[in-house]
Design a protein around this nucleic acid. Structure first.
Lengths: 256, 256
DNA sequence: ACCTAGTAGCTTGTCTGACAAAAATACAGA
DNA sequence: TCTGTATTTTTGTCAGACAAGCTACTAGGT
């Protein structure tokens, strides 16, 4: 009753009514209240029974919603004590595009993040690649060349190429993060391999960048690999039309 | 019965018995089976009832476990159809240190990832910082100087400094990722501010690097900011004893 | 023989009620 | 005022039931 959700009373039924699973909607409602600091860090959530009454759902639904908030680090629960908003809500996991589609601005931002990580990954790959790593990278490159020649979809090989480079860093976290970002881009990467994309020569342009990147890694040149990766990411962004990304300020053309 | 978990029968009760919440253990057990490809992508999980019987828990526990696996993108469920292992399990969210503590090797790897992102963040911050951003960065720097002078804990200010730089990129995803990584490092950062750490001059050394980074951002020099960030991250790693990180191969001293 | 429509069974989603375990609170006694 | 013990509150778990939606099989029509 005296808990910090007074405004929800009239809206509770409306808020949880139409689409999808009830627990999803409850998760969204509670997360919104936490992110807006209406439920501040350290505050106690209403009891499960109270939440169930307020949102007109059963305790099972409430528990499922809270379980997910717990998994994402928004709340912590202690048997007997209740559920508390975490000190730093939402920092237990990193996600992108929570549910909805990504607009162009978000895509450009994620591309910047991707550029940062993949550039570093290329550098590390050039330093640490083993013979097996090189074989995997070359195999993916070959599959893409094949796809271009025969005119079928090379998106999977494209993915594999970037993953193989990430694997060559021998850094499990970097590898997983590159995979993670690549996964969320897999849809955005489709247009390059459509009929339109081929006519525009997008796969061929990407392939030239891939070959340059591969060559730098093969000969163990970290700086060149990093430059090639950066150029490739910038080229990809341009081809996808997500705007200029991480444009370095001009350096008077002096760098190497 | 005929489902792909034959080996679990004898272990079920043992596997879920001692510590913590039952659903946590069930999550771990199922995730292990998915990650080991014992439950391959596209495969159907046993029904909730079957899982409950096998692991000797109620359906409520099974549902909570599956809800979390769903949230992390390991499985997908459809009412009436069952639960299927996702095509690319675990790629819906990025997490580090799943439950347990991080050993030195993992810490070094995460440091490499952090270096990659924060270096890029510093570069972008130098390009895009507003007056407000600079004020926030300087304020955090001042709080750290204060902490050093008066001998109390400056870990929070240290965090705030890195967060302020991330904010100055005006890239929400990069900001959130820097926060995410910083959060998981907050414990590892403690030793710098202990009595031992102060005697070893660690906060002072870090502060010199901070000042250099701040200066580069203030005067809008992206290349210098990136170098300063890289040096700082390398310095931090050395001070924390997590080993050499992202050591660039020598370039004959030629780069700029 | 092949295709279509309906039906029956199975599985997840939700609801209800109950008890156990742990924590917070109130209270009595020193 | 402090301490130790009941009482109450709250989460964790269990059990049974029904609704909603999917799958697969069957029966009927062509």
């Amino acid at each position: 009753m005296g808990l910090p959700m007074q405004t929800a009373d009239a809206l509770a039924i409306r808020e949880v009514d139409r689409p999808g699973r009830l627990s999803d909607q409850l998760v969204a409602a509670l997360r919104a209240r936490i992110e807006s600091a209406e439920l501040a860090p350290g505050a106690r959530l209403p009891t499960e029974q109270a939440l169930g009454e307020r949102f007109a759902v059963s305790r099972a639904v409430v528990r499922e919603a809270i379980a997910r908030l717990k998994a994402d680090g928004y709340v912590e629960t202690r048997q007997g004590a209740g559920a508390l908003v975490a000190a730093r809500p939402g920092l237990a996991s990193f996600r992108i595009g929570a549910g909805g589609r990504l607009d162009a601005g978000a895509l450009a931002q994620i591309f910047e993040l991707r550029a940062a990580v993949e550039t570093a990954a290329a550098r590390l790959a050039a330093e640490r690649r083993t013979r097996g790593d090189l074989a995997a990278i070359r195999a993916a490159l070959g599959r893409m060349a094949n796809a271009i020649d025969e005119g079928h979809d090379g998106a999977a090989a494209d993915d594999a190429f970037h993953r193989a480079i990430a694997t060559a860093t021998h850094n499990g976290y970097m590898q997983r993060f590159v995979e993670f970002l690549g996964y969320h881009f897999s849809e955005s990467r489709r247009p390059s391999w459509t009929e339109d994309g081929r006519r525009a020569g997008r796969p061929q342009a990407a392939q030239r960048e891939h070959e340059r990147l591969c060559a730098a890694i093969v000969r163990g040149d970290p700086a060149a690999a990093a430059r090639a990766a950066e150029d490739h990411l910038r080229g990809s962004a341009t081809r996808l039309g997500v705007g200029p990304v991480a444009r370095r300020t001009s350096k008077g053309g002096g760098e190497r």
